[in-house]
Every structure is written in structure tokens, then in C-alpha cells.
Design a protein around this nucleic acid. Sequence first.
DNA 1: CCGGGCCTGCGG
DNA 2: CCGCAGGCCCGG
Length: 241
Amino acid sequence: MTDSNVGSFKKALAGESLARLERHGKWMFFRLSGGNTLVIHLGMTGRLGVFAADEALLPHTHLRLALDDGSQELRFVDPRRFGELCLYSPDRWSERFGPKKLGPDALKITQRQYHEILATTERRLKAILLDQRSVAGIGNIYADEILFAARINPSRRGCELANAEVASLHQATGAVLRQAIRHNGTSIRDYVTGEGVPGEFQEFLRVYGRAELPCRVCSTPIQRTRTIVSGRSTHWCPICQ
DNA sequence: CCGGGCCTGCGG
DNA sequence: CCGCAGGCCCGG
């Protein structure tokens, strides 16, 4: 942000209070009393947490919001700055986050919605799961883990799936994400919860990051490629999936 | 669909 | 020093 952007950002936030907090997929929407929305996305290395107001700032702290009791503040820290921190007017918000722009939340999607998304596309499943306009909230780790749990090959095309496979994908999506949440997420490198605690789901990964290690189900070496979705690594078991 | 870009930090 | 990373956007 330039200095003048920081100035107008502060001005727009001055005197506002938080009316409501929403989340859809990986986006957090802070609905403000005046009608605008503060949007926060953690990107790769973002962290949102409550800190004591007198605690030293971590490097790359981009936002500090005072909380009511005055002794604490909400801070947004993001070394890599792949996250988003932006204030939207109602119109601009609808334009950017309207129904066409964000698929159903991965924790709430129904099997029927999954069916509708998949039946009409020839895209590969891995690409569909990573596309936030199809399903919102799944990233690279969880896409691989969900497809393994569903026993579906990441290269399969959406429209090829039988109803039973759609059901399996739907079930696996909820199961993997809920299990990951229960374990405070996956800490491979940087990730920590808002409280600064590393997650533990990395202990439970069955394919992600396990290239050439034996499949936990059938012992076949896990495969890894970057060609299914270019630029992103994909891991799978060639036998189970 | 693909490749490149955006950033920083870390491990090999 | 290089290559790589959990995300997403853009242009071709």
C-alpha cells in the first residue's frame, strides 16, 4: 500500500465497528457498521490473531485493529503478501464476490450441488477442486487428500464421475476438511493458528508431500506430478485412485 | 489450459 | 545460490 492508500484506508475504518463476521471458503468478510466490508484472505502465509496491545509487532504486521477492551488488538501478519486486505463498498463487493465468483462453501456443499458442478464439465477433478468458483475453500493439500479419501484419480474428468463417485467425493470433502480443522490445520512450513499454535494435520496426510513413500493403504509408491494442474503439485496413489 | 507474476523465507 | 512453497489473477 502506498502512504495515501494507508491514509484513506484508516479514514474509511475510523469510527466503524464490526457488525457481523462471515466466512466463505477462504475469504473472511468483516461487515462494518457503515455498510462497507473489510475482506481478509490469508493467502499462503497470512495470519490473523489477537495480540496484547503492548506485545511487540511481528515483522510484516499490516493491520492492527483495536478491540473494545483496549488491552488487545486484532493483527494481520503476512510475510509473503499473497493475502488480501481490502475494503469494499457494497457494490464493489458484489461485483467481486457475487454468486458467479464463488462456488458453494466446501463445508456446506450438498451432493446435488456437487453433481451439478461436475456433470457439466470436462475439466479434471484436481482443477475443479482448486477453482474457488466451483467449490470455495479447498486448496492444494486438501484437494489431494480429499481425492485420495474418495479413491478418485485427480486426472478424471468431472463429467465422467458415476453417482456413487460424486457421493464419495462429497463425503470425503466434508470428512477431510472437518478432520483437518479438528487438528488445527496443516503446518508444513509457516502455518500457525490465530493463537500462534502449529496445526497437527500434517501427521495425518495420506498423499500430500509423500511422493515415493508407500501408500498407507496398499504400499504402492505415491506419485507426484506438476502436469495435472500446471504449477501445482499433485499427489496420488496409482492403485487406490 | 498454460505460463508467468506477485512476495518473502527457508532448506538443500 | 537456486528452487521451492499451502493462493490467486491475468493475458495469450
